[in-house]
Simulated assay, not measured.
Amino acid sequence: MKPRNKRLALAGGVVLAVAAIAALVLNAFQSNLVFFYSPSQIAANEAPQGRTFRIGGMVEEGTVKRDGLDVSFVVTDTAKTIPVRYQGILPDLFKEGKGVVAQGQLRDGVFVAKEVLAKHDENYMPPEAAEALKRAQQGKSQIGESVVQQGATGGGSR
């Protein structure tokens, strides 16, 4: 084999090796990517079925039920609610009415969590959860304003 052909074969081998490594890294990144969804997005069927993702919001008051290590509670963004099941020890800061982010999968309308994260201090809420709560509040206020406007203009039926 000529020296020129050896260099071309070596260069081609290096390019193929780099391409294979890049493909493996991108595939690993894609399979480990976890998206965040609010209860409103899950109720609107925007969350993936059968894939791991995160849900965040507030733990609704009066919904935490414990049976040994089995815990069920409801997460809300003040507009929609999603029931959550978890088996394990909850973080010390987990409380009703406080922020929570859970990672797991949606099964038959119930979010089955593999990991539950509670907020860190009195002022902290995960940015995704804070944004979801803000969007839900804006949606509720827009609905309330339209109802008030319909009542003021006589839009209701009697």
Rank of each mutant, 00 (worst) to 15 (best):
D77Y: 06
K65F: 03
F73T: 04
R85G: 07
V84P: 10
V71R: 06
V75G: 09
G88Q: 08
K65I: 05
E60R: 14
G57N: 10
E61S: 09
M58S: 13
T78D: 10
G68F: 01
S72P: 03
S72A: 08
R66S: 06
Q87R: 15
G57W: 12
G88I: 03
V64G: 02
I82C: 12
D70I: 05
V59A: 00
T76C: 10
Y86M: 13
A79Q: 14
V75E: 06
K80P: 02
G68L: 00
K65G: 01
G62I: 03
D70A: 13
D77V: 04
G68W: 02
E61I: 05
G68I: 00
Q87K: 14
V74F: 07
M58A: 11
R85D: 12
P83A: 14
G68N: 01
G68P: 01
T81I: 15
F73Q: 00
V64H: 04
V74A: 09
V84D: 02
L69Q: 15
V59H: 01
G57C: 11
L69C: 10
G57S: 12
P83E: 08
T76W: 09
G88C: 07
S72R: 08
V59S: 00
A79G: 07
D77K: 03
A79I: 09
R85Y: 11
K65R: 10
V59G: 01
F73R: 02
E60D: 14
G62S: 11
G57I: 11
K65V: 08
D70W: 04
D77T: 04
T81E: 15
K80Y: 07
M58T: 15
R66E: 11
Q87S: 14
G68E: 02
S72Q: 03
K80T: 08
E61A: 04
T63F: 01
D77S: 06
V59W: 00
G62Q: 05
R66N: 06
G57R: 06
A79C: 13
V74R: 06
V75C: 12
Q87H: 12
D70Y: 09
T76D: 10
D70E: 15
G88P: 06
Y86L: 13
S72I: 02
P83M: 08
F73H: 01
F73Y: 03
G62V: 08
V75W: 05
G88K: 05
E61T: 05
I82K: 08
T76M: 14
I82Y: 05
F73I: 02
P83V: 08
V71W: 04
T78S: 12
M58E: 15
V71H: 10
Q87N: 15
E60I: 06
D77A: 05
A79T: 09
I82A: 09
Q87G: 12
R66G: 02
T78P: 07
K80W: 05
T63E: 00
V74C: 02
T63N: 01
V71G: 03
T78F: 11
L69M: 14
E60N: 08
G88S: 09
L69D: 15
